[in-house]
Each structure stands twice: as structure tokens, then as C-alpha cells.
């Protein structure tokens, strides 16, 4: 589904931001990308989506099948219209869908995400968490095969986190490939298929959550408390 070979990204001064990344992600897998601030999580997501700016140069290959949607770390920057419903419809309009089809599509995903009460509101009245949900809805309505989420949970309160998590879980049921960059994986630990740990732009290690928890704790990634205790016991963690 996504095959990354020998991927390196350099900034305009030639500094390597990602170094020789090799990665295989299968269809329907949920993958977590973890790492300290500045380790390259967002750059990797942007490279997969093909959104690196002109000031960055890319070497190596990224092959992916299907349509890719992305929710950015600051989702207010991907909002283009004032009214929520009109904003959500933006990409569908560009794809040439009829009004009826658009309404049906928006209603379907809005009911999954429980955002019906937001549809008639103005973006500038919404909280950060509500805007994140609108951005996720805008991504979901275009029915991508792959969804990239850059730290979708940290600005949200517990209630909204649970709603977004439920939705992410539903994406998995629908065979959508999901890649999430997060430094707090407590809620996703049990249903992620794979965790990738980045350090200073390099792929430090990857594996199943169970194979990775000690290493993750060592690098300051939040894992479920019980796993943190085990890592602590092994004495390698903290």
C-alpha cells in the first residue's frame, strides 16, 4: 500500500531532516509514528502526502496506492470557508458531486463523527478541538484509501478524544490505511498494528506495540501505565 525506499529529505542548507528511511505499510494497517519533537514525524507525513515545500529536497522513492487524505497538526490552517458545512463540501464540489450526493456523504460521515451540531456553525465560533473534528470530517467525506493524522488527539478534551478515537477505529474496520503521528499513544497502543520510532530523522526501530514499548518509554513516548511499569521493571526504560 505504501512503500518507502531510502527516503532522505534535506532543507535548503543541506541539513538532513529525514535520513534513509525504508518502510512498508500494508493496506488496512494502523501505524503510529512516534519520536521526540523535531525527530521528523510531520516531515515524514508530508513527504507521504507529497506536500514538502520547495525549500526541501527529497531523495529516494515513495510509492502509494490510492487517494491520501491528511489532517494537519494545526487544522485551522486547512479550513477554507467560514461555514462548517460549506467547508466540508469544498473538496466534494471540486470533485463534481451533485448537491444530493454531497449532502448524503456529509450526513453519513458527520453521524459517524458526531459532528451534526457543528455543521451549521461558523468556523470562527469553534474551539480548537471542534475544528480538528471538522478537518477530520472534511478528510473523511472524500473517502480516501489512506488517512494521515498529525497529532490529532493532543488538543482535544477527553470526550472529543474518545469520539476521534472511535472514528479512527471505524476507519480501520473499513480497511482504510491509517498513519498517525503522536507522542502519546496510550489510547492507540492496543489497536495499532505497527509503531515506528524516529530519532533525529532516522528510523530508530519499528515493530508491534508489544515489541516496542520499552524503547518507546525510553524516548519519552507515553504508553499505557501498565506497560510503563513493565518497562520500568526491566530497568531499561526510564
Amino acid at each position: 500500500m505504501i512503500k518507502i525506499s531510502d527516503l532522505s529529505v534535506k532543507d535548503h542548507e543541506g541539513k538532513l531532516l529525514l535520513k534513509e528511511i525504508d518502510l512498508d505499510i500494508k493496506r488496512g494497517e494502523t501505524t503510529l509514528i512516534c519520536g521526540e519533537p523535531g525527530s521528523g514525524k510531520t516531515i515524514l507525513l508530508k513527504a507521504i502526502k507529497g506536500l514538502l515545500g520547495d525549500d526541501l529536497s527529497l531523495e529516494g522513492d515513495i510509492e502509494s496506492e490510492g487517494k491520501i487524505g491528511m489532517v494537519f497538526q494545526e487544522p485551522e490552517k486547512q479550513v477554507v470557508r467560514r461555514k462548517v458545512k460549506l467547508d466540508v463540501a469544498f473538496e466534494l464540489e471540486n470533485a463534481g458531486l451533485s448537491v444530493q450526493k454531497m449532502e448524503k456523504r456529509i450526513d453519513r460521515y458527520s453521524s459517524i463523527l458526531k459532528t451534526d451540531h457543528l455543521l451549521d456553525r461558523n468556523i470562527d465560533e469553534l474551539s480548537h478541538g471542534e475544528i480538528t473534528k471538522v478537518a477530520l470530517l472534511s478528510t473523511m467525506v472524500s473517502e480516501p484509501d489512506i488517512i494521515l493524522l498529525d497529532e490529532p488527539l493532543s488538543p482535544l478534551d477527553r470526550r472529543n478524544q474518545k469520539l476521534v478515537l472511535e472514528s479512527i477505529h471505524k476507519l480501520k474496520e473499513q480497511d482504510i490505511t491509517v498513519i498517525i503521528a503522536e507522542h502519546d499513544i496510550r489510547d492507540m497502543y492496543h489497536y495499532a498494528d505497527k509503531v515506528i520510532l524516529l530519532k533525529e530523522g532516522k528510523l530508530k526501530r519499528s515493530g508491534t506495540p508489544k515489541e516496542m514499548y520499552v524503547e518507546l518509554v525510553k524516548h519519552g513516548i507515553k504508553v499505557p501505565f501498565e506497560m510503563g511499569l513493565k518497562a520500568h521493571l526491566e530497568g531499561e526504560g526510564i
Binding site: Q73, E151, G220, I221, K222
Partner: peptide, 11 residues
């Protein structure tokens, strides 16, 4: 306002 948002545990 949200001083630890986007930071990992060590941060």
C-alpha cells in the same frame, strides 16, 4: 495556554 501541547513526556 496549553504549555505542553505537542510535547512528549520528557518535554
Amino acid at each position: 495556554d496549553e504549555p505542553t501541547h505537542s510535547l512528549h513526556k520528557k518535554g
